[in-house]
Design a protein around this nucleic acid. Sequence first.
DNA 1: ATATTGATTCAT
DNA 2: TGAATCAATATA
Length: 195
Amino acid sequence: MARRLARRTLADDPRTVAPRLLGCTLVHDHPDGVRSGVIVEVEAYAGAEDPAAHTFRGPTPRNAAMFGRAGTLYVYRSYGIHWCANVVCGDQDGTAVLVRALAPVDGVEAMHAARGPAARRARDLASGPGKLCQALGITGDHDGTDLLDGSGPVRLLDRRRPPEGVVRTTRIGISVAVDEPWRWYVGGDPNVSRR
DNA sequence: ATATTGATTCAT
DNA sequence: TGAATCAATATA
């Protein structure tokens, strides 16, 4: 179908790929029904040249998926409690794009059930990297699966049109390389985690 | 603004 | 074996 995303699109510098992912759709073919959302916020992590990247100090058991081929899903545990999902980029060089927020599309009821009563409004469902994984049901079980070839339950679909009003800023929640402007989000979207 | 959560990592 | 780190969230 027309929304297949070419792997070569991801096999590039994460700072080039990141804004290209805005408007793309992340899908989880959950056993209880499909859940999906449009990506509205991303951050690039540039591997060996980026002190904020998990892969900055080389391979470890945790970050192994990040050294996989472009289009691999890297899921890690953040602060011991949240799962965070990343799209692996580049050429097996430990670079990736963190997906930080989604505009919910399919399975909104299931997302509410997964997120609990605290997520009252629709924009509380997936407005953060941990929230979006909880909403879609993405966990460490999906780490290392492929987002493009349909072999795994989590998939990435290409966008139909580029979003309007994209804003570029510095990244959130890191303590090093804080001045690098490697975060992009859709300016007018209420699902963005923080402005 | 602040308390809190627990896996991962690196240094003893 | 243990302390420090951490790409965050929930509550107020």
